[in-house]
């Protein structure tokens, strides 16, 4: 098992600074969805992680804790995530933003 980043939607959608999307060294790994927070009645959308691309470097955790000071990202074992987005289930939207079908992580 290995660690991947997990973003707390409740904290992220309250501010939506998008800093983690700009500091992740992996392309298209931390993505942004407008609907993720709004479905829960929060003000903004939220960032989320495509777990199959995350290499677990935790740079986003440092950025969220020290630059944004939101403490919304934690490193979690991949089999302990209740739901996660993977690249195949992510759709890019014409209006900008993305949409993901998040499903329980299948661990072989």
């Amino acid at each position: 098992m290995y660690l991947v980043a997990d973003i707390n939607v409740d904290i992220c959608a309250a501010t939506s600074c998008k800093l983690c999307t700009q500091y992740c060294p992996e392309a298209n790994t931390i993505l942004y969805s407008d609907n993720l927070g709004k479905e829960k009645g929060l003000k903004y959308g939220s960032a989320y992680v495509a777990v199959d691309r995350c290499k677990g470097c935790a740079q986003c955790v440092w950025v969220c804790d020290n630059m944004a000071k939101h403490h919304a990202i934690t490193m979690t074992m991949i089999d302990q995530l209740p739901k996660a987005a993977i690249t195949d289930r992510i759709t890019y939207l014409d209006s900008g933003g993305t949409k993901a079908i998040a499903a329980p992580v299948e661990v072989a």
């Binding site: 998008k18 700009q22 890019y92 939207l93 900008g96 933003g97």
Partner: peptide
């Protein structure tokens, strides 16, 4: 600033 919403 649009990172995370388009294919790179």
């Amino acid at each position: 600033s649009q990172m995370g919403s388009f294919k790179e």
